[in-house]
């Protein structure tokens, strides 16, 4: 497989020969990829190509699906993600995730953000917890909008706000990787652009993997792009190269809108 790796940046995660099966059906076929630290990597491809399945391999979210089986190795530093010794709970504390549809818990805004620090026992005192919530909300660019109504129900926020709340909730645990599964697909264009700006800012601190169905979005926010088709990684490289000079015919067909 051809992969172009920009050696200028350090590697955060390395996936090797990842295969995923749903029962008898194979959803991912020998995918290998190196993810750069503190950058945005976009996974694109037609629906059903396995990009979301692949994303969920990084924090073992596929464990939740009983029929799902993952093979191959994913290394993050010296952590073997797929190893039985690796506790998925700890793994998910290190790798935050934002989902397709905003899914705030039916609690107050404060409680949503405080959820992670609480379960992991990260805050020693109430003031420390308050600080963590404020800090996370600020990093997610939501503080200004909700500072005076932290005790309101989170479900009362707009869709875009809810999604940023979910980002704040993920950040509050203090991960160094963020997975985003089509985070803007349920949002309107204005909310989308706010999130996209946020992603660019977050890239300073986090390694971000984003699945998106929008090529424009991938082009706008990511440094690296991986193109998936029918469960295989077809092309992976710098975003500008993938979009301007795709090496693969399929990639070109997809980018130019011939398949979708």
């Amino acid at each position: 497989m051809d992969t172009v790796v920009d050696m200028a940046k350090a590697i955060k995660i390395q996936a090797k020969d990842v295969n995923v099966f749903y029962g008898e059906k194979q959803a991912l076929n020998n995918v290998s990829i190196d993810i750069e630290d503190r950058s945005v990597t976009a996974f694109i491809g037609p629906s059903g190509c396995g990009k979301s399945t692949f994303l969920r391999c990084f924090n073992r979210m596929n464990d939740v699906i009983p029929s799902c089986r993952v093979e191959g190795s994913i290394m993050m530093g010296d952590v073997d993600v797929n190893s039985l010794q690796t506790d998925p709970v700890l793994l998910r504390a290190r790798i935050g995730m934002v989902f397709q549809k905003p899914n705030p818990f039916p609690k107050t805004i404060f409680e949503n953000v405080a959820y992670g620090p609480r379960i992991h026992g990260l805050a020693q005192s109430k003031t420390e917890l308050d600080d963590m919530v404020e800090d996370s909300l600020k990093k997610a660019g939501l503080w200004g909008e909700v500072a005076d109504r932290l005790a309101d129900q989170a479900t009362g926020l707009s869709g875009g706000q809810q999604q940023r709340l979910c980002i704040a909730r993920a950040i509050a645990v203090g991960p160094d990787v963020l997975l985003m599964d089509e985070p803007c697909s349920a949002l309107d264009p204005i909310a989308t652009s706010v999130i996209e700006e946020l992603i660019s800012e977050l890239q300073q601190r986090f390694t971000i993997l984003i699945v998106t169905h929008s090529m424009q979005q991938a082009a706008r926010v990511s440094q690296k792009t991986a193109y998936f088709h029918l469960g295989t990684l077809v092309e992976y490289g710098d975003t500008k190269d993938v979009f301007t000079l795709p090496k693969n015919e399929q990639t070109e067909a997809y980018i130019s809108g011939k398949i979708g």
């Binding site: 709970v89 700890l90 549809k101 899914n103 818990f105 039916p106």
Partner: peptide, 27 residues
């Protein structure tokens, strides 16, 4: 209770018990 809430809780590193007690049951 929608699966998305459970996913959200697991995604933050909740154990199964925490997901149930803190997210699913309140919902």
């Amino acid at each position: 209770v929608p699966q998305s809430l459970r996913d959200g809780a697991y995604g933050l590193g909740s154990t199964r018990g925490e997901t149930i007690i803190r997210v699913v049951l309140p919902a």
